[in-house]
Design a protein around this nucleic acid. Structure first.
Lengths: 125, 125
DNA sequence: CGAGTCATTCACATCGTCTTCACGGATATG
DNA sequence: CATATCCGTGAAGACGATGTGAATGACTCG
């Protein structure tokens, strides 16, 4: 199996390990806690792009430009929709972890953090 | 290395380190003791502006002019309100540190100092 | 054709943020 | 002590940003 149409892996890195999440770039495969995630092409691209910048805030414009390879149009909510899809699938596999964090006005940040609202009382807000 | 798409950084400096507090200017991300802070655009702008002048007193007029990019109107308390918001969030992450110090009649000074009232009883004030 | 997957777009709901105001304590001045 | 500012703080309203469910059409596979 060759990775014909896919140059430009992150400087020779093929596997990203983010906590219990493993992302095999050349395969297009994401493994969460030992189980393979069922992701579409767009979903995987976005996940990989986020994971490449683990711990850093990435702007919507940059995410879209790199994954869709065309500029994000003003008012386009595509990124938000795909972030939602990723969150759902990640939570299905790893309910006690949060990966995609919103920074209002800036963008999204990818980092594994324990779910907060798991055994906290409702007053903690 | 330069920060390409982001002008206005402090002379090419992208990361400000103030004690255990790290401020990444190009990302809009502040990290306190290893954990990412959740700051709004205004909050981050004010924090960055204060940190740029660490150890020095900065007048409200100057803070507002640089962050809001419009002159501070007479009687406007906005800076005070945002200083409050920053203090709360900083204390949540770093309870034993004080960063923003008031200089009555002059302005605010940003500098990491240990909290005094950490193990003192409530009467000692 | 019929079922399923996917990408895209839309509309509405919800949440976060910005701004402003008011009250009261703190501080300086004489 | 009396007075005038200065500052800390909580809250409310308006607005914008983000979350979310669903509809649509293109496409594939059998």
């Amino acid at each position: 199996m060759e990775v014909a149409g896919d140059p430009g892996l992150t400087g020779g890195v093929d596997i990203l390990q983010v906590g219990v999440l493993e992302i095999r770039l050349s395969e297009g495969l994401a493994i969460a806690g030992g189980r393979a995630l069922r992701l579409s092409v767009r979903e995987f691209g976005l996940l990989a792009e986020l994971a490449r910048h683990e711990g850093r805030i990435v702007r919507r414009e940059d995410l879209y430009q790199r994954v869709w390879e065309t500029p994000l149009r003003h008012g386009d909510r595509t990124i938000d929709v795909y972030v939602r899809k990723l969150r759902v699938k990640l939570e299905q596999s790893l309910p006690e972890w949060r990966f995609i964090h919103t920074h209002v006005g800036f963008g999204y940040r990818f980092a594994p953090e324990r779910s907060h609202d798991f055994h906290t009382d409702a007053t903690t807000r």
